[in-house]
């Protein structure tokens, strides 16, 4: 693989790095909010992967214009899929945050090790 090819996959490198950054935070951090931030980064990385794959070089938004018959369009399907996945991600985040609120009410802390000690 030449340098140009490696650089050409720039988006995929960012996807992989973001994925691992998020994963790392989920595993290592003890603070539940930080864990959730990590989870959010982890999910967003996958959104980036889907967005990258639908881009067609020189392509524009997939809205058919009758006066421009030779227009190249980007693939709209992954965008639609990822719109759904974003909604799923937002709901997960909201549910996770509300769980943390409850945990804080019942335990008085949001640090994982302190919660483990409390029970």
């Amino acid at each position: 693989m030449t340098l140009i090819e490696i650089l050409g996959h720039f988006n995929y490198w960012v996807f992989a790095i973001l994925l691992m950054v998020g994963f790392y935070a989920v595993i290592v951090k003890h603070n539940l909010i930080k864990k959730l931030i990590g989870l959010s980064i982890f999910q967003s990385a996958v959104f980036l992967m889907y967005i990258t794959m639908d881009k067609v070089e020189g392509g524009t938004a997939p809205i058919i214009q009758p006066d421009l018959p030779d227009q190249i369009y980007s693939n709209p399907l992954p965008q639609v899929l990822i719109l759904t996945a974003i909604v799923v991600g937002v709901s997960t985040l909201a549910l996770g945050l509300s769980l943390i609120v409850r945990i804080n009410e019942r335990y008085g802390t949001i640090e994982e090790d302190e919660i483990l000690e409390a029970d």
Binding site: V26, L32, L39, F42, A85, L99, Y107
Partner: peptide, 20 residues
């Protein structure tokens, strides 16, 4: 509550892997 939080983290990682 913490049990659910753990499930939420694991479950979301599983679902995201599936999505990849």
């Amino acid at each position: 509550l913490p049990a659910t939080f753990k499930y939420l983290i694991t479950g979301t990682i599983g679902a995201t892997f599936y999505l990849i």
